[in-house]
């Protein structure tokens, strides 16, 4: 450390509550911390469990089986001509990621109140941790998608090229919601109470268990406002593009990007404003 005093970072702490965006320089300085926080989250989640990371496979598998039995067999809900198991697996895996990380990230400030009061680091790391960490579970559960696709002999198409974009979108949706919800929750605990209903509402207003073709064209303009619709439809087209019903729906994709970007940017600004006072009001 041969820094001269002039090279050292100077931090000015002021009382004024200015509007600011994420300080990426500071975040970059803490990138090792983000890595260890993510890694701690994963390690602690499976500590002293026999199954370990295998649970990342078993949990979504059980969920898919339950939904397939109920909605695919007992109630024939329709699946655009595809086997229901295939139809639901490619949707439930990204949805599990989004719902799981959204709940964890939204409660991240409240859940870490002890640490918030003892040490400073950019508070956005708290909601970022489960969103990044969830990718490990997601990657493991991709095995299920591959297995089901192999079983039904699905041929991949060039739609697959959309996958990287879809994964980014899949991360942006929970980030967008949790930036708002985690910072609202520190002042209004109502957020925690409403969270369960909110998640179910998001789920039922997206084509996870049913095909989006059952939504009328007049309603579709409203329907696509739920950013999850674009992500789920995107995953189906990317993976099951060989089926004529599964063409890429650009309206929902673009809408999802726009809505989650808007929520992300405004959420980041609101989060930045609230993170300063989080210790005082939590």
């Amino acid at each position: 450390m041969s820094e001269t005093p002039h090279d050292q970072p100077v931090v000015v702490i002021e009382s004024k509550r200015s509007w600011a965006f994420v300080d990426f320089r500071e975040l970059n300085h803490y990138r090792d911390l983000i890595y260890f926080m993510v890694w701690r989250g994963i390690k602690v989640a499976y500590a002293q469990s026999v199954g370990g990371l295998a649970w990342a496979l078993v949990q979504p598998a059980i969920q898919i089986l339950v939904f397939t039995v109920i909605f695919g067999n007992l109630v024939d809900i329709g699946s655009d001509g595809l086997p229901y198991l295939l139809f639901s697996t490619v949707a439930i895996i990204p949805w599990s990621y989004m719902s799981g990380t959204m709940s964890a990230a939204s409660g991240s400030l409240i859940g870490n109140s002890a640490m918030l009061g003892k040490i400073y680091f950019p508070r956005i790391i708290y909601p970022l941790t489960p969103i990044i960490g969830g990718l490990v579970n997601f990657s493991i559960s991709l095995i299920l998608i591959v297995a089901v696709m192999v079983y039904y002999q699905v041929t991949p198409t060039k739609n697959m090229l959309l996958l990287p974009l879809l994964i980014v979108m899949m991360m942006m949706v929970p980030l967008a919601f949790s930036l708002w919800l985690s910072s609202l929750a520190i002042r209004y605990r109502d957020v925690g109470i409403v969270m369960g209903y909110f998640m179910r509402m998001l789920m039922y207003t997206a084509p996870i268990l049913y095909p989006s073709s059952s939504i009328s064209e007049e309603m579709r303009g409203w329907y696509v406002l739920n950013p999850i619709v674009g992500v789920i439809e995107g995953f189906r087209s990317a993976l099951l593009g060989a089926s004529p019903e599964m063409f890429i729906r650009w309206d929902s994709l673009i809408c999802s990007v726009v809505v989650s970007l808007l929520l992300c940017i405004t959420g980041a600004v609101y989060f930045r404003r609230m993170e300063r006072i989080v210790v005082d009001v939590i």
Binding site: P9, V12, Y120
Partner: peptide, 18 residues
């Protein structure tokens, strides 16, 4: 001083790592 909570009034300047 350690940025855990902001002041309601006034300002402070810290040089270097805290």
């Amino acid at each position: 001083i350690s940025r855990i909570t902001p002041p309601t009034k006034g300002r402070l300047t810290v040089r270097g790592r805290v």
